[in-house]
Design a protein around this nucleic acid. Sequence first.
RNA 1: GCCGGGGUGGCGAAACUGGUAGACGCAUCGGACUUAAAAUCCGAAGGCGGCCUCUAGGCCCCGUGCCGGUUCGACUCCGGCCCCCGGCACCA
Length: 836
Amino acid sequence: MKPYPFSTIEPKWQKRWEESRLFECPTDAENRFYCLVMYPYPSGDLHVGHGRNYIIGDAVARHAMMRGRSVLSPMGWDAFGLPAENAAIERGIHPPVWTDRNIRKMKSQFRAWGIGYDWSREFASHEPSFYRWTQWLFVKLFERGLAYRKSAPVNWCPSCATVLANEQVVGGRCERCDAQVTTTDLEQWFFRITDYADRLLSGLDSLESWPERVKTMQRNWIGRSEGVEIDFRVAETDEPLSCFTTRVDTIFGVTYIVMAAEHPMLRDLVAGTEQEREVLEFAERVRAQDQFDRSAADVFKQGVATGRHVVNPVNGEKIPIWVANYVLMEYGTGAVMAVPAHDQRDFEFARKYGLPLRVVIESPDEGLSGGELDSAYVEDGVQVNSGQFDGVPNREAMERIADWMEEEGTGRRTVSYRLRDWLVSRQRYWGTPIPVVYCERCGVRAVPEEELPVLLPTDVEFTGKGESPLTTSKTFRRAVCPECGGEARRETDTLDTFVDSSWYLFRYISPRDESAPFVREDVDRWFPVDLYIGGVEHACGHLIFVRFMTKVLHDLGLLGFDEPIDTLFSQGMITLDGAKMSKSKGNAVPPDELIGEYGADTERLYTLFAGPPDRDAEWNDTAVEGAFRFLNRVWHTVEKWPFRAGERERLSDELSGDGPPDNVRDLHRKTHQTIRKVSADMAAMHFNTAVASLMELSNALRAFTEAFQAEGGKVREPSGVERKAVAEALESLVLLLAPMVPHFCEELWERAGGGGSVFEVSWPDYDEESAREDFVTIAVQVNGKLRGEVEAERGAMEDVVVELAHANEKISNHIEGKEVRRVIYVQDRLLNFVVG
RNA sequence: GCCGGGGUGGCGAAACUGGUAGACGCAUCGGACUUAAAAUCCGAAGGCGGCCUCUAGGCCCCGUGCCGGUUCGACUCCGGCCCCCGGCACCA
């Protein structure tokens, strides 16, 4: 049999959708549904693995349309970024040229997949009409003190003499020239996201429709811990030196203090002492080693004593200060109190350098004696050697000691976060220029709103060396101070592309507005996004940044809500031979060949059928053929049994009740059961089981029609009701399949005489009465083991079913001669005899 | 180590609230059609575990990572463990 003509159908409907503007959604629509897929970086080459989230989003959007929702499903481009700049360096193509070409390529790919977007709202982050507002937002943050400058280390390639992004550093070496990468400190821009750490954390609790794994990842990332900041004083100078601890209950067990090599007090602390040279040299070494090795977990601990001491405020003890590589300046206060008896890291360090150890928490069962420990005791227990707190369970002591220290003024409760401020500046060309100028007299000044956008210059050189390419522009650097009108220097760093993507979803609501980034009333009406679809790799980057930006904009009075996304969906990867598809690894399946051979609808159907969409799924070429086979079967059935669009609605009555023959009632029932099942599955995004039940309906339909050909070896004319049952089943099948295989269903719908688009037709309803089974198969168990089954009328009473069961020899064999102690009956499902 | 997710046929997977495990599909095997093949259609199928039947079939046993528990009944609930994937991790 000939395959169905997908290659003419698909372009035909793609064109129709565009011409009819089916997917354009007015901003003032009622009954809104905002369905958003993360906008992609326009890399140019897509494989079938990339298709998954767009296909899922499109199926959801089209289903919502059939449910009568006004669906907004826009698409745009995360267009700034490194690859465009690399193309400029390597092949001399100017970044916007390369980017625009890729956008065109990808757009045609989306079209070939049959994805319906509201292209009237399209934008790209590299367009000045967009980045003007990114700059505007930056200025707002700057004015609020949420954007600030500080010195921070960057990756530095000495051979290219340039700054490298993290992804350009491979195994500590420069991606391009393979030189050993070092670090240098540079003044950089940060967003004060740590100010929002608590709200970002607590907000997660309200996100009920986010996957647990994403929320967990964000919680880990934010890393909140409660503890106490303790004021030690340097014994020799009386200077304060504070430490953060989550274990104040161990304060009486502190035997030394450790500072980070970067600690600002260190230099003064050792100035003029015997140890000065040794300590400073050590600190220098640690700082050099740090950037690459600190994250490698198995670095061994090293340290040196400073010769200075602090006084422990709880007992007046004088204990030594050390400097060590295992203390991080970025976390807590950059100095920690060491309790070797109860902290494994301190334990290892103390053992190595022969530092003393004191047990202050004893296991309630077995006592501990200091000398015999072979690792730190980190479990709960009872306080010992802890002054007035001896004998108190340590959990309780934690609270009491904290209270006491707060009263005494020797410490206070605080909260520390793992989350760091967001470094937003990049020493690159292809990004949003940071809209500030530096004036000798007035300092750092934001570019005034009316002067935005600060445009990217085009007279730059791409060498891959030196500072940001923006510094090579003849005109860009020179600026005028908005304050004094004097000469100023323009910032040459650009913004991290995550700044663009932290607010782009608002822009879709008013994409062409020239007076504001977005219109608050409209955004308030459309948000939160009903469904946001994207990869889980964005859990701790993009998805935190969007939440942060939303809260900032809320605080600025620009938005009426502070969580932007209602339901988040993270699709699983498509793998090939168990590995993530990637063009560079040569295991990517390109979509064009597939579409050429089977059509986009087959790819869509397979992608949705392959497994639960939130889990990884393996690409399987032969299973793709199975999807194609299914579509062909449906196609040929419709060709043989044409139905008229809209007929279904009139048929339900005629097909139910006692009138029609059994085969008709069975098919009618199956049709309504399928509508019920597919409706529930679509709402829950269980596309794989939705497809499975549609296949079942199709199989039932085949068996039904087959009967006319098979009977007595000759063809029988189907009766009127039989034709109607088939029509109802087929029309339902076409409507239920439409969100998943849209071209296919549009074409069948049109051939059935349906005017317009199938997506303007409402999703079929099922009739509970028609879906109900008249007879049920009841499993019969004896002592919990299945021994047979009986057919009974739906809703049959226990005694009826018991009688049927006894009449069944297979079952009665197991009961005979035994005492029936108990009978358990679950109506319409199961009967269990408990015999003894 | 902590946190999250997962482990079901040869494979992808299904199973409502504890009620016939394996729907649906892929691969496989057998058959029909064909000169032949492809395509298409029909059928079989968890177990190289046992028994009866003289081969079509019937019966029993075992089976959802492992061990135990609760229950008339457990993929599902509880306790303990193993393995895989992901996140965090010298974070005090």
